[in-house]
Write a protein that binds this DNA or RNA. Structure first.
Lengths: 165, 165
DNA sequence: GACTTTAAGTCAGCCTTGTTGACTTTCCAA
DNA sequence: TTGGAAAGTCAACAAGGCTGACTTAAAGTC
């Protein structure tokens, strides 16, 4: 391995196994921190991380169908249903029969649900904001680039899709 | 909020709630992809994600004690023990009585354990490497900066500590 | 030497959240 | 009218978290 020329004017040292390992561990620790703040809040309300995910995406795209949510979350219907049922029973989520297609259930947050979602995502955004501010806009751009490359085409499509509709 | 001057020559648009939300979702989807490759491999061997984490850190720091591993993983003794026991029974991990302090058990991978760890981390590095290569060294630097800022002081200390010892 | 603390391990039991498989009801569409 | 899609349900199971209580062995302290 000739270490001389450094192709395209960049060295490839950032692709060593050691660098990759640091990245892997950074993902592990950061994800733990990332979920810790909402987790604390959720526990106080008697919910789990699965409830948070449901609330997040229903808030993000009000009126989405169960099938769509299933695809976004990547879990089974039975698993989601358990979570969704408690959210509906507790009056955080409302399930409305579709106007065009009456088989569909369109999911919406109630005021109570929206309030919890705001609290959860404010907790999560707080940490994110601090990290962004500390790292600066350039770093944030890189952060997003790497994450998007890491998620692969299928998840990236879901990720992109979310914003338009 | 005067949107005029853009302090320090940078706009703060990267700190909007919308940008933060995109970051949050990127973490969610990327983490899912991040764990998917090793998860597939683990399933073939009848292990779970918890086993992977134990193997990773034992490989990374051979001879660490159970207490240290507990702190790194952030789980309870009972939870770790269940996992560790099967790894030892299956001959992937060896537990040696400490030389200085005989209460300690120092953990090491066997050849078989090291082989599985290599396979798992090669699967994980594969995705990471592709993402790094696609995003480039600048982006990678930003990625690491944001993750490190996100993990907070305690986890960051653990993260740093790991490399030296 | 007696006492306390630490490291490790264990038993029992509980919870959340994931899984499969089977089956129903309702409704759309060809 | 019939096939398939959307939703929901029941049952059973597994992984991997958790708490609480308790044991054993070794180290450290007074």
């Amino acid at each position: 391995m000739a270490e001389s020329g450094s192709p395209q004017g960049e060295t490839l040292l950032f692709l060593t196994d050691e660098q990759l390992r640091k990245g892997i561990e950074a993902m592990f620790f950061a994800y733990r921190a990332f979920t810790s703040d909402p987790d604390r809040l959720l526990e106080e309300h008697g919910y789990g991380r699965a409830h948070h995910r449901a609330l997040h995406f229903i808030n993000r795209q009000p009126g989405l169908t169960v099938t769509t949510l299933l695809a976004v979350l990547g879990v089974t219907k039975q698993s989601l249903n358990r979570v969704l049922r408690t959210l509906i029973e507790d009056g955080l989520v409302e399930s409305r029969v579709g106007r065009r297609d009456k088989r569909e259930r369109r999911l919406h947050l109630t005021e109570k649900g929206a309030a919890l979602e705001r609290a959860l995502s404010e907790a999560q955004r707080g940490r994110m904001r601090a990290a962004y501010r500390a790292a600066g806009p350039q770093a944030v751009a890189g952060f997003r680039q790497v994450l998007e490359a890491m998620m692969g085409p299928d998840l990236h499509k879901l990720y992109q899709t979310m914003k338009e509709e």
